Amino acid sequence: MIERYLRLLENYLGICYERKTYVTAQGKIKVEKNIKTILDLTENVFHFMIYRFFAIYFKCLIKGDYKSANHIQDMLKKYGYEKVVKSWLKINM
């Protein structure tokens, strides 16, 4: 059940980034709360680490740290998670 919840939170982050809802003060608070929730839920469970990476990845995107976001994506690809990160946004700098 937690994994389903994490997927919903992950999809919500993707939509927020796509629609740029994080630009407003209220939107920023919701996105930060969402990221914190994902990080809290995945803190001690290895099985959920990909969701943790996703939250950190989106945190970098929202802050405009595209270099770190691309680095996260590249490292996950390097370690065999190409199929997982295939659907993540690739930022061209």
Rank of each mutant, 00 (worst) to 15 (best):
S68D: 09
L13A: 04
H47C: 05
I15T: 08
N11G: 10
D65N: 15
Q26L: 03
Q26F: 06
M1D: 06
E18A: 03
F53H: 13
D40T: 13
I38Q: 07
K90P: 01
F58A: 01
Y66E: 12
R19C: 00
V85R: 12
K36Y: 00
K36E: 14
N70K: 05
L76G: 03
C60R: 13
T37I: 06
C16W: 00
V31R: 03
E3T: 13
E43K: 15
D65S: 07
K20C: 02
S68Q: 10
E10M: 13
N34K: 05
I56P: 01
F53V: 09
V23G: 01
I2P: 03
Y5H: 10
M93Q: 09
F53M: 13
I38L: 06
Y17M: 02
L6Q: 02
L6I: 05
D74M: 10
N11Y: 08
G64I: 03
L89Q: 07
T37G: 04
K86H: 14
Y12F: 11
F58P: 03
R7S: 13
E43R: 15
S87T: 12
L13E: 03
V23S: 04
N92M: 11
I56A: 12
E10D: 15
V45I: 15
F53Q: 14
C60T: 04
E43I: 12
K36C: 02
V45R: 14
D74L: 04
H71V: 07
I29Q: 04
V31C: 04
Y66D: 11
Y51G: 05
L41W: 06
E10R: 13
E18S: 10
I72W: 03
A25S: 06
I38K: 06
I50T: 13
N92F: 11
K30F: 00
L61N: 03
Y22H: 07
M49W: 11
L61I: 09
I56F: 02
N11M: 10
K59H: 11
K77R: 15
Y81K: 14
R52E: 12
C60H: 12
K33W: 00
E43G: 05
I72M: 07
K86A: 15
R19G: 00
E18I: 01
A55T: 08
L76D: 08
K28Y: 02
K86F: 10
L41Y: 09
A69Y: 03
K20F: 00
K33I: 01
V31K: 04
E10Q: 13
Y22C: 03
L76M: 15
I29N: 06
T24K: 07
K20H: 05
L39Q: 13
A55M: 09
K20V: 03
F54V: 07
Y5A: 08
N34A: 10
K67S: 13
K67P: 03
W88L: 07
V85Y: 11
G14A: 08
L61V: 06
T42A: 03
A69Q: 06
M1P: 02
E3K: 12
Y12I: 07
K67N: 09
D74W: 08
C16F: 02
